[in-house]
């Protein structure tokens, strides 16, 4: 069964500092050492996945404690997508690194160095390549 972060967060274990991540070319890196280029190059190798730019348009409090609703404008068509996530959930911002709605909580729970996610930040997200 997939393990999760220590008490206080139900985020997956791969966001905990020190977790080992395998890039598409087989290289292993710690989650806290990942760079924008690692995601871009991995997506280029992938036959199924492509990276989209997702710009943060709004961040609102959720009715659920410790959750936030983040609205993104996704891809070249600027499709509006909202996700409800724990405030400590880290998104990877292009050229910047891990960012969350509550970076203090992310650092406390996951030990993952993190900055504050803000409106206008451009996050890395994935979509499926068109398979024809």
């Amino acid at each position: 069964a997939p393990s999760s972060a220590p008490s206080g967060s139900s985020l997956p274990a791969y966001f905990i500092k020190g977790s080992i991540i395998q890039l598409a070319d087989g290289e292993l890196k710690h989650v806290e050492d990942l760079k924008t280029e690692d995601f871009i190059q991995s997506a280029e190798i992938s036959s199924e996945l492509k990276i989209d730019s997702s710009t943060v348009e709004r961040i609102d409090d959720s009715h659920t404690p410790n959750f936030a609703i983040v609205q993104f404008s996704v891809g070249e068509h600027r499709a509006q997508v909202s996700v409800e996530v724990q405030v400590e959930y880290p998104f990877f911002v292009f050229g910047q690194g891990w960012s969350s709605c509550c970076p203090d909580r992310t650092t406390q729970l996951l030990e993952l160095p993190c900055t504050k996610l803000s409106v206008g930040d451009v996050c890395i997200s994935l979509t499926l390549k068109n398979l024809r």
């Binding site: 990942l34 996945l49 996704v74 499926l128």
Partner: peptide
Amino acid sequence: NVEPRSVPVFPWHSLVPFLAPTQSD
């Protein structure tokens, strides 16, 4: 005796959210 424990390795795409709008074409 201590049994060796395997260290989990996670694929890179686990870390990236799927924000896939409905594709239209």
